[in-house]
Design a protein around this nucleic acid. Structure first.
Lengths: 190, 190
DNA sequence: AGCATTTCTTTACATATGTAAATGCGCAGC
DNA sequence: GCTGCGCATTTACATATGTAAAGAAATGCT
């Protein structure tokens, strides 16, 4: 729980009042490796603080192929933000790639509490902006750089992740086939 | 100017007070076809309401090739949102594809005015969320659908745009070469 | 109206990357 | 210590899509 508060405070410093409000809303839970936090087709209701573990967000294309859109490596916030704020069905599932410890909360409750609360409203604005920026960053990287550059960036962004999850998940994140990732790793190691 | 207010009101209804605050901040201007509203490498300072015309947001990859990331078709808001909120150098230039009429405002002034103003804070939160959602939507479309599906969606999203800007800009938006777009159009018309 | 410029289509060709399948490697469980 | 299974690598091959260039069509300017 202290980790959660530390994490929020690193975005915007929060008042005592808001912190105690928060504290009451989050409850501890666990996700076994392979378990889903959100599935596609359902309406997301919860958000969670990922205290330990790795979660992937992925979508499935036309032909049933999976693509990893994001990794969440603790400490981080998980939950289908798009579905939560749009109130639409979720398109991007989130699944634990390792056993995870999380603190979850009802998004609806958070929304209720922020009604009329300037501080939480501002926190939500900043969270929205941060999501926007990290999405944009990833999008530009995907579009402007070739796969071996993206591979490098991925390694910086998620240090050590390659030791904890299979290679094909990385390939999927980079938008290439495992075969192609193998070729890149080969040339890189020469 | 009425158009601007109508446009904002369609997102969240605004109070008289906020509307008059706004009204004072936006001034009329024009963009000639080909002119830039923001360039890459500079710090964005302004936001604008696009009253008439079409603007593209595009980035340039490794090899100097341009890719159209978004079209803004009036009525719409333009300005490098990412650069404005992150205070970082801009990566995605915005250029008029037709002559445009705009109303522009200093983003810094808007920020100042929103300090402590719950209503504007909420407006900004919702704007951030909307940007996030439309980015996410485009990203998923790009990733999950093939080019001819994306072509269809593009036509729905920007009705009539094909008559107003060259085909190669559309191709660039779809992430394919003009040659390939031609092939798609050909099979589609059979 | 006629010429120049821009845009679109088509052809021919090159190539990067995916798919499929075989091989190799390493860790887990017995 | 052996066996089996999941994962990574490698090979061979297919193919979608890009590049380049030429020709056709459309647009616009004087």
């Amino acid at each position: 729980m202290e980790n959660l508060i530390k994490f929020f405070n690193s975005t915007v410093p929060l008042s005592e009042k808001v912190i105690s409000l928060m504290a009451g809303m989050f409850v501890y839970d666990e996700l076994k490796k392979g378990a889903y936090f959100v599935k596609t087709g359902e309406y997301a209701r919860e958000i969670a603080f990922l205290e330990t573990g790795i979660v992937r967000a992925f979508y499935v294309n036309n032909e049933g192929k999976e693509y990893n859109k994001t990794f969440f490596s603790a400490p981080s916030i998980i939950g289908s933000y798009a579905s939560l704020i749009s109130k639409q069905k979720n398109n991007v599932a989130q699944q634990a790639l390792t056993d995870c410890k999380i603190w979850k909360a009802s998004f609806h409750e958070i929304e209720k509490v922020s009604e009329g609360n300037f501080e939480i409203e501002r926190l939500r604005r900043m969270i929205a902006e941060n999501y926007f920026l990290s999405n944009e960053k990833k999008e530009l990287e995907m579009a402007m750089l070739d796969a071996d550059k993206r591979y490098l960036i991925m390694q910086e962004e998620y240090p050590g992740i390659e030791l904890r999850i299979p290679q094909y998940h990385i390939a999927s994140y980079l938008g290439i086939s495992p075969t192609q990732l193998s070729r890149i790793r080969k040339t890189r190691s020469l």
